[in-house]
Each structure stands twice: as C-alpha cells, then as structure tokens.
Computed example of a mutant assay.
Amino acid sequence: MALKNLLPLFFLVVFVGILAAVGYVVYSIVQDVSKNTKEKMERKHMVFSKDGMKVQVKEIKDEEYKDRSQSVLVNIWNHTSFPAYKSRLWDMGGSDATKSEGGAEKRKPYSK
C-alpha cells in the first residue's frame, strides 16, 4: 500500500529530472552559441557590453579619405554619358576630331 502512494512521487521526480536535463542541454547550447557569436563579432571590431554595443572604426587619414572620394567621383564622371546634351566646352561623345588631334577639338570659324 505504501508503494502505491510513492509511485506518483517517483514519476514526478523522474519527470522533473528529465526537464532539468533538457533545460541544462538547452542552456549549454545557448551559452556556446553566445560565446562563439561574441568572438566572431569581436574579430569584426564590435563589442557587446551591459551598456550596449560598441563599434570600433578603422582610422582613415583625411588625405586617403579624400583620394577615395575623388576616385569614385572621377570614375562616375568617366562612365557617364549625356546622349541629348551638347556642350560648347567639351565633347562627351568623343568625336573623330578629338581623337585624331590628340584630345583637342578643332573649332569651326565663326560665320554669319
């Protein structure tokens, strides 16, 4: 009779033990993923703390920054075409006169 009363207690202890084991496995996996993620983020100069996330920026000298910016603008300018635009100062299409005379376009004489 006493064994019959202890059987639900035994099942409860086994059930709580299984839940504790599953909880521990989940906790250890979360901690491992958190540690690996933190290490990867630190390699990319990002640090998580209680205050928030801090991002370290590589220092670029002012002259290098200006050179990169100017290079991008020059590349954009060189690869741009204005199909309906005719300039009096330069030929964006690259006429034959410009190519044959070393980059200088020959002007036509003014006539009325």
Rank of each mutant, 00 (worst) to 15 (best):
D62C: 02
L73E: 04
L73G: 06
A2R: 03
A20C: 13
S28E: 02
M41V: 07
F48C: 06
V14P: 02
K54P: 02
L9E: 14
V57F: 09
E101L: 03
D62T: 13
V55D: 01
G23N: 02
A20G: 15
N36S: 10
S111M: 01
Q56D: 14
V55N: 00
K112G: 02
W77M: 09
K58V: 15
G52K: 04
S49D: 07
H45D: 15
R107M: 03
K112F: 00
F10A: 14
E105R: 13
I29S: 11
K99A: 14
K66V: 07
M53W: 13
S71C: 04
F82Q: 12
I76R: 14
V47D: 08
I76V: 15
R43P: 00
R68P: 00
D32Y: 04
A21S: 09
Y110S: 01
S69H: 02
T37F: 01
G93W: 05
E59V: 09
V47E: 11
F15H: 09
T98S: 06
I18L: 07
D96V: 10
V14T: 12
M53Q: 10
T37K: 08
R68C: 07
N5L: 07
F11I: 14
A104K: 13
S81A: 03
A2M: 06
W90G: 09
V22Q: 00
S28I: 03
F10M: 12
S100F: 12
G17P: 03
A21F: 09
E101S: 11
Y85H: 11
D32T: 10
L7W: 07
L12I: 10
V30P: 02
K50P: 06
K54L: 13
A104Y: 09
L6D: 10
K106H: 06
S100K: 13
E59M: 07
L73K: 07
T37S: 06
G94S: 03
W90Y: 10
A84M: 04
K35S: 04
L3S: 09
M46S: 13
G93R: 04
L7N: 11
M46A: 12
K106Q: 06
M41D: 07
N36L: 09
L73A: 08
D96R: 13
M41W: 05
D91Y: 04
V14L: 08
Q70A: 14
V57W: 07
K40C: 05
S81K: 09
A97V: 14
Y85I: 12
V30A: 09
K44D: 12
S87H: 04
L3T: 04
